[in-house]
Design a protein around this nucleic acid. Structure first.
Lengths: 235, 235
DNA sequence: AAGGCTTGGTCCGGTACCGTACCCAACACC
DNA sequence: GGTGTTGGGTACGGTACCGGACCAAGCCTT
């Protein structure tokens, strides 16, 4: 029996109790292991997702095979937001970057519920705005920041969603997320490590000094996070 | 007296006649000169816009002053879509990149109308999805394409929205849009000119061979455009 | 304990793009 | 017709990042 007070997901936590009651019978618990695919590009979306633990990467792929992360979410948001915008599919890939768990709701049921409750729909749409801001920020930093700044941003976004000081991730995956060479990631990690901002072990990154990491990320980090606080609530 | 059949804007053209009738009394014609600001960052949005002629740049700015374009629209879309998502402001700048004209609708009126008509709202939300796809594509190409590819993409997007073979734009503005040095733009233009894909005159670019320009843009161009055709209609 | 796989450190030459600057050509304005 | 302004061509050294490759260290399996 689910209790709203024990829910980690911020959207589920911040909707009104009556909206939560609407959703509750349809929240199917699901284990979300690393690499689990939530949304396949250009295929019908069967479920929407509310992550409790773990983090999802939303990835855009170019026809030539190169790909890059255009956004992430975890307990801050929901998966497959495009269904709210009237599209049952999306050109982007969504898969678990860091394993965890959450809930899924069949798309059709979810759409019916947001049609019933305006307040529920409004909360979800505000999150869409926040996610858009995050994607725009990715466009900005991909075009104008050096790798270690972008890496610092990614590590911070990761910590925000996992609220852990440490999480499993390989240089190889980071290179795909940031759209750079694997060894460029290694170099950037060494820079942050040299400043004692993080510590990297095999397949693992630990945050040592969050405040200084924020400074290292500079203007790359913060805008979507502020929009989240403004429109959804505290993290 | 406005006639839906003579409207250039694709959204206004593709909504149902009854939805158009809802909007019609509130469509205030407006001249949109070059540099006219449609949306100021982090300030309340008073009007939404439907462009008939010209093109708007949506620009994200970093605290350190660097900025980059995260999307464009013209007669294909609408301005200030964030109001549809429940946010009365946005962190991004929107201003006329190429002057023209269009309609404005007071935000409050527009929100009331989309609340009244589900079909109207659905069309606008589908456009939000398309625009998001465009922003994601910008994130992708900013991180993984060489300048002349990105330039080719920009020129194509511009032509799609103006349906003109020629339009006024300076290297300086392009450098801000692409987030690169002004002289890097000059170099990229020379490459495309050398292949006889475009011709550049002072403050002006002319398209000579659109098909080959699409090939020059490679995988940078096409994904959001396909989403537009799938969800809205032909351009 | 041995072998295989995954992950990360390092090195090479190469290049795309940078910051800055200078100058000239085109156009605008009296 | 002269002068100021804007836009574009070009050049220089510098650097961030690339593609590719190789090897060592860590971990997993049996």
């Amino acid at each position: 029996m689910l209790d709203q007070a024990t829910i980690r997901n911020r959207l589920l936590a911040y909707i009104s109790p009556s909206d939560f009651e609407l959703l509750r019978p349809h929240l199917q618990p699901i284990t979300l292991d690393r690499d689990y695919v939530l949304v396949k590009p250009n295929e019908p979306i069967e479920h929407v997702y509310f992550v409790e633990y773990g983090m999802v990467s939303v990835v855009a792929e170019k026809a030539d095979g190169r790909s890059i992360e255009v956004g992430v979410y975890g307990r801050d948001g929901m998966g497959a937001t495009t269904v709210l915008l009237g599209s049952d599919q999306s050109p982007h890939h969504q898969y678990m970057q860091i394993g965890g768990s959450g809930f899924q709701v069949p798309t059709a049921v979810f759409l019916e519920l947001v049609e019933q409750s305006r307040t529920l729909r409004n909360m979800m749409l505000r999150y869409v705005h926040v996610f858009m801001t995050q994607t725009a920020q990715s466009a900005l930093v991909n075009g104008s920041s050096v790798i270690e700044e972008r890496l610092a941003r990614w590590v911070l976004m990761c910590q925000d969603r996992l609220d852990a000081m440490e999480f499993p991730i390989t240089h190889d995956f980071l290179s795909m997320m940031l759209g750079v060479r694997r060894s460029s990631v290694t170099d950037a990690i060494h820079i942050l490590e040299g400043d004692l901002l993080i510590r990297a072990r095999r397949g693992n990154i630990e945050i040592l000094d969050r405040d200084r990491l924020v400074r290292a990320a500079g203007a790359s980090y913060g805008v979507p996070e502020a929009e989240f606080r403004r429109l959804i609530g505290p993290m």
